[in-house]
Structures are given as structure tokens and as C-alpha cells.
């Protein structure tokens, strides 16, 4: 199934794009989606510290994906 991924903060720099569309197996969870994100070593390292959101809900890596989900990749935050 197709999942749209959006990258935020430094992850946008690592990904070289705001968005990517990835193909994952039916029944895949967020963790499987993360494994399907290609990138360099810096990206892989930073992904370990990222949170994920669908809409305005933070979801754990065990969250099961549905066709058409849009998953936001959120690196550690630094507001204020």
C-alpha cells in the first residue's frame, strides 16, 4: 500500500525533500515504514530519535498503517 511521508526539521534536510511516497506491505506498522526510508547514515541515526504523527495524533512505531495514511516524521524538537 502507498503511504505518504512528510519530513520535518532537520529530517527535511536529510531527505532532500518535503515528502516521499513509499510502498509498504499490507499490515505494515510505522516501524516497517521507517525501515523503508532510504537515506544516509545521518538520516538513519536521526530516525532512531524521531516521533511519528498521523494527522494531529502522535503514534508509536507499533501503530498499524492504512492505505492513504500520511505519516509525519518529527525529529527531536527545539522550540522556545
Amino acid at each position: 500500500m502507498r503511504i505518504e511521508v512528510s519530513f520535518w526539521g532537520v529530517m527535511r534536510r536529510h531527505a532532500g525533500a518535503e515528502r516521499r511516497v513509499l510502498e509498504v506491505d499490507e499490515g505494515a506498522d510505522v516501524g516497517a515504514l521507517v525501515s523503508a526510508i532510504d537515506g544516509g547514515a545521518a538520516m538513519a541515526s536521526e530516525l532512531e530519535r524521531c516521533a511519528f504523527a498521523i494527522g494531529t495524533t502522535l503514534v508509536p512505531r507499533s501503530h498499524l498503517l492504512s492505505e492513504g495514511d500520511e505519516v509525519a516524521v518529527l525529529p527531536p524538537v527545539s522550540g522556545g
Binding site: 516521533a51 503514534v59 527531536p76 524538537v77 527545539s78 522550540g79
Partner: peptide
């Protein structure tokens, strides 16, 4: 500062920049 999804990029006199290290907000990590 610790929970809102906001990111800070600093700019320096030589024109370079970098994102400030922040707080992980993953609920499971």
C-alpha cells in the same frame, strides 16, 4: 519547549547554519 513540534535552525556570521539539538517526543521512546 520539550513537546511542541517546533524546530530551531541557527544562522552564523559566516553564513552557515545548523539545527539545534532537541528533545525526543516519541511516545514510545
Amino acid at each position: 519547549k520539550a513537546r511542541a513540534p517546533i524546530w530551531k535552525e541557527e544562522f552564523y556570521p559566516d553564513g552557515s547554519s545548523s539545527f539545534v539539538q532537541g528533545c525526543c517526543i516519541a511516545p514510545d521512546q
